[in-house]
Design a protein around this nucleic acid. Sequence first.
DNA 1: AATGAATGAGCTTTCATTCAT
DNA 2: AATGAATGAAAGCTCATTCAT
Lengths: 206, 206, 206, 206
Amino acid sequence: MRKRLGKEKLIKERRAQMLTASAKVFAEKGFHKATIREIAGEANVAEGTIYNYFRSKRELLLSLVSAFVEESLQLAMTRPSSKSDKEFLTTLLKDRFTLIDKNMNLVRVILREMMLDEELRHPFFEQILSKISSQLEDLLETRAEEGVFRKLDAFIPVHAMMGSFLGFILLGLDRKGHRLPPEELASQLADFFLNGLRLRSGEEPT
Amino acid sequence: MRKRLGKEKLIKERRAQMLTASAKVFAEKGFHKATIREIAGEANVAEGTIYNYFRSKRELLLSLVSAFVEESLQLAMTRPSSKSDKEFLTTLLKDRFTLIDKNMNLVRVILREMMLDEELRHPFFEQILSKISSQLEDLLETRAEEGVFRKLDAFIPVHAMMGSFLGFILLGLDRKGHRLPPEELASQLADFFLNGLRLRSGEEPT
Amino acid sequence: MRKRLGKEKLIKERRAQMLTASAKVFAEKGFHKATIREIAGEANVAEGTIYNYFRSKRELLLSLVSAFVEESLQLAMTRPSSKSDKEFLTTLLKDRFTLIDKNMNLVRVILREMMLDEELRHPFFEQILSKISSQLEDLLETRAEEGVFRKLDAFIPVHAMMGSFLGFILLGLDRKGHRLPPEELASQLADFFLNGLRLRSGEEPT
Amino acid sequence: MRKRLGKEKLIKERRAQMLTASAKVFAEKGFHKATIREIAGEANVAEGTIYNYFRSKRELLLSLVSAFVEESLQLAMTRPSSKSDKEFLTTLLKDRFTLIDKNMNLVRVILREMMLDEELRHPFFEQILSKISSQLEDLLETRAEEGVFRKLDAFIPVHAMMGSFLGFILLGLDRKGHRLPPEELASQLADFFLNGLRLRSGEEPT
DNA sequence: AATGAATGAGCTTTCATTCAT
DNA sequence: AATGAATGAAAGCTCATTCAT
């Protein structure tokens, strides 16, 4: 029994080892230019071994995405206890920025391959983006009913925010020097967005 | 002379033909999975012919980017006659959305390859984004001095807007065509952004 | 351990197998017209296998040269026990002729490609020819001091002999019928050369 | 008529122009690596033009060989007025060394391709080498009968001399230019050879 | 006669995947 | 379970040759 557990643990570690290695190589070279040989080398296993854990190079990528999605979801589900709107939004953004920051290389690969690959895009969009999207929509609608936010079709602002977020990732690629720390960035973005949502004094709440 | 002109024109058409074909195939398959054979087939020329016009597959991609950058720049330079801020921003966004819409396939390829390829990223960032970015910064600063906008470090709002824009492109991948027509999208986005920029009554203009 | 040795041996055999095959095909077709496919076929391996042993087609050729140079050197270093001059020279020439005969295909390729390729020429000239050359020069000078040979600048006779030797290889290409057995050829050549070197009676030993 | 002649002359010039260009490029790159494009460029004509004068790239090479053979033959036929043997041989060698020197690059290509190509080898061997060979054989036999030279099967010395000659060409590859001027080389070689052929005093003339 | 754009066969090389050990 | 040598399909690219102008 002990042995069994140790064995299973070992297997999981091997898997993780390979996933980590592939994440690194994919990130550096892109999916196509990454070779199994290099990934195997990075993971300190033989090429053939990888095929004992993953059916194909592609499945390696899919597993990578799954792992990332899973981690993201845990974070995404921990809805910030909404004190003020500013705090809520800042925390939401900061958490995501931090997650992205930690997995920047991986995110780049995923974003990259996502553009061509429906199978890759789907879990990402459906599981991650839609979660965040609905959280934001909830916030917007709740606050609109409370008379704090303008009454808007949530589609535009939600997508603008999320898009903006993705955009920062992309744009950030080239401005390493310029990049603000996640907290600062989150705070300023939240401010910018909120001030576009807040009902201005003297305006009808509708 | 007449003949010569006709020949030159023909050559340009051939070039365009191949660029178009490659844009299509690159977009469908991605740069790596796209084959010269398929591009040649799409362009109705022999494989070798492509190498009479482009030194390599990669140069085909670079030429594609150049062509797009050039077209974009012409548009970027035609600064909308700024009547109201809303109109200015709406027009700016609408023009870009339209350009992107027209070249969606191309944009996808470029965005995709940009992430791994410094040589590809550079002209895009330096030539296009920086132009748009400085236009927006100008607007923000001018209006801020006039007391209409809040005084902000332009970095955040400018990048939020552009990032949001890129984000819409990405998000648009999953939905065949935008749900909203470019004009409507532009208008709503402009509204969203502006209301975040406008000085609210009772607030210090600084 | 046993296993390991067997494996290493197998690998060396494989390598040899490919080198032999490439020598044959290179000899028949010349370096450029020889295709990897044909070499692989001749060696009974897949095309890709060749690239597990040699980095490129060119390296295959270089390895071929190295192998030949190595074998030649072993022979070249075994200086014939110099009984009479005639025997010494005959043995020297015969050994070389035999070596060449055994590797005729290979020598053709090397000679052929040597003419254009400095990198190929260099090891051949520096390692093989210079060894033989200095052996001959030694002989000439020793004998000259002993008063048996005429005192000559060794350059001409040494190069004439070696050149003649190479020339026989080249000229021999077309006269398969005419070719004398190596021993006979060596003996007659030695005689011819020596009688040009021998001090004639009544002549000053210098 | 005048026009006609001018035209024909022009055509011959064109041909010569292309042959010269091809000789240069073949010599620099070798037959296979030489491209029609480069030859055409060197000759200042269009690629297609070459095919109006020569059926194929290969025929270009064959024509080149023919031209060289022809020039060589003219020289080979002008048998040196044989004063002394030394003078005869020296002149013979010198003439050939000079011819080779002038066409070194071309000779290399021919030698190179000759090794693989029966069709190329044949005219060279049959027309040039056999001419020189028989001249030498004549000399040897005449002098043998006169009691000046040893009675030998002419095969060995003739081929040794010619081989030596070829050898000097090959060996010369590594040294930019011969160390010795053609006259000096020819004289010393003649001396070396002759002293191997001359009947030594006290020996039977047979 | 001269041109040079178009052609496409054929080359070297890479690399995901298999499988005997 | 792990290995890594062998595989061979498939890709980018070159270039002799053709032919419409």
